[in-house]
Amino acid sequence: MKAKFLALVLGAVLLAGCEDRTFEYVATVSQSLDYTVDQEGAFDQTYTVVANSFNDELDLPDDAIIGDVFIEALSVGVKELSGNEASAVKLTGSAGGINFVEDLVVDVATGTYEFTVMAGLIEEGIRRMRDDLMGIVESGNPPSIVFRLQGDSDPVAGQRLNVDVRIDVTVTVLYAVETEFPAL
């Protein structure tokens, strides 16, 4: 009786094994878009995000199954360089030819970037940005995304501008990986 009881318990302990389970992961990367403006009046510049560079930065596991891509947030900072006369700049940004922000006024900071939330985002532009990034993460297509930044000094247009503008795009990628895991 004792032996049977012991065998039953031992068997139960040893039967606890592993199983394949799929876990969802969240990878977040911040993509900086840098522009240097050194001119009088209106400006129009581009910054290109290359698919390979973005995916290298993301560095997902080889066996990752992509679930979704989200644009989490955009922030912007404008840093003054020597000779700048503007106290603020008015910005309009687009990705893939569709505006994601229009006429956003950002104060020029001295010394270092002072990042603020990029408010008033335009859904259509964010959706296009998200779709392009989804394509990059899934298949490397499109091979790049052009982020265009247009603007002028504010509140007085046409002033001498010598500033660095940085836009940080926070991107979240949801992916799944199948993992061998104890049956708990």
């Binding site: 644009i71 985002l121 964010i126 979240t172």
Partner: peptide, 8 residues
């Protein structure tokens, strides 16, 4: 969030 942004 705003403008079809999402926090995960």
């Amino acid at each position: 969030g705003d403008g079809e942004t999402y926090y995960a």
